[in-house]
Simulated scan of single mutants.
Amino acid sequence: MCEVGEIVRSGPPAAPAGDAAEVELPDLTLRPHLLGAGFSDDELRRLVRTGRLTPVRRGAYVQGDLPDDLLARHTLQIAAAMRELAGDAVVSHISAAVLHGLRIWGVPLGRVHVTRRRAGGGRRGALVHVHVAALDPAEITMIAGLPVTSPARTVADLARMVPFEQAVVVADSALFYQRPDRVELGDLVDVLEAVPRRPGTRAARRVIEFSNGLSESVGESRSRVAIAAAGLPIPVLQWEVRASATGRFIGRVDVGWPELRTVGEFDGLVKYGRTLRPGQDIAEVLVEEKLREDALRDEDLAVVRWIWSDLANFAPTASRLRSRFRRI
């Protein structure tokens, strides 16, 4: 009998030219194909027990273990769910955000979200949440052969239903200035205004008014939310600091208050990993960061840093910032 790996899988076709994003969905092995290749249900159960196959959902398997990464797992769940749903289902909400590669924080990934262009029939099951809503053809794009809500529609849908902080993270990502397929602010406004009475639209407007394409990470987006909630002045994002005497570029800081002579930096470890040059280790980066901070202080700038755990209770950090604010 043939090996499991020899079975022809039923994965979606490769993304055709012109797709909104180049995403390769994972290979799935489906029960009908395995049965058609001569495997019995008893053999399939034995393959699952021995770890050769792992169920993604009923009747859909991946060879070996599920990936540890939650986003990769959710992509598997999307691929499996879309094989069982009716042809009018469009991947949407947090599932669409995953396929678009948007930053995500604090939004559950236990269910695959899809939208159907119907008047009724929505349901929330254990594995799939089916939304029903009007969908303009312009709000649908194709990713790896699957219909997916556009980035702008995806942000609007999430902003209507998830808490403010989580929605800002996604919106900032879609607007991010270095993103090749970045969404324009006007596109988000247009999507919301197309159906102004849809539930959650007022909350979504607040999200979009606050969002900014200069935030470079989940931590920076959450920091902006925390700064605003603490009642601190609105900072300058990605402030480029130069030496007052020579104009020499010193560095770009996450947030700054030029008139108050204070800068703020969110310290996520991944931030330093991004700055590594070939052959450079993290210790060199940390030394360079120390020299950069010394140069900022030489410009009579107070430097306040915070980490992930500070974002859960930002009040002490806000107090440190206030204590360092000073007028020229």
Rank of each mutant, 00 (worst) to 15 (best):
L66V: 01
H113G: 05
L70A: 13
E139G: 08
A86Q: 13
A302Q: 09
L214V: 00
A89E: 00
D298L: 10
E289A: 14
V183K: 11
A21M: 11
G145T: 01
L34I: 06
V255D: 01
A134I: 07
I307F: 09
V62Q: 05
R277C: 01
R123Q: 07
G186S: 12
V263H: 01
L188V: 09
I227L: 15
D69E: 13
A302P: 02
A156Q: 00
H113Q: 14
S217F: 10
V107S: 02
P196N: 08
R111K: 14
G11E: 09
E299R: 09
N313M: 10
L158C: 08
E184S: 09
E288I: 03
V155S: 11
H33C: 07
A243C: 14
T262Q: 02
V114N: 01
V23S: 03
I208A: 14
P16N: 00
F249C: 04
P13D: 15
I328M: 06
P233C: 14
S211L: 09
G51Q: 10
G219W: 07
P12I: 04
H33Y: 07
E289F: 02
P278Q: 12
R326H: 13
S173L: 08
S223G: 07
P316C: 10
R297G: 04
A312L: 13
V98A: 09
M142D: 08
R49N: 05
G87D: 13
R52L: 09
A17P: 05
A72P: 03
V270P: 02
I94S: 08
P199W: 02
A243E: 15
S309Y: 05
Q77P: 00
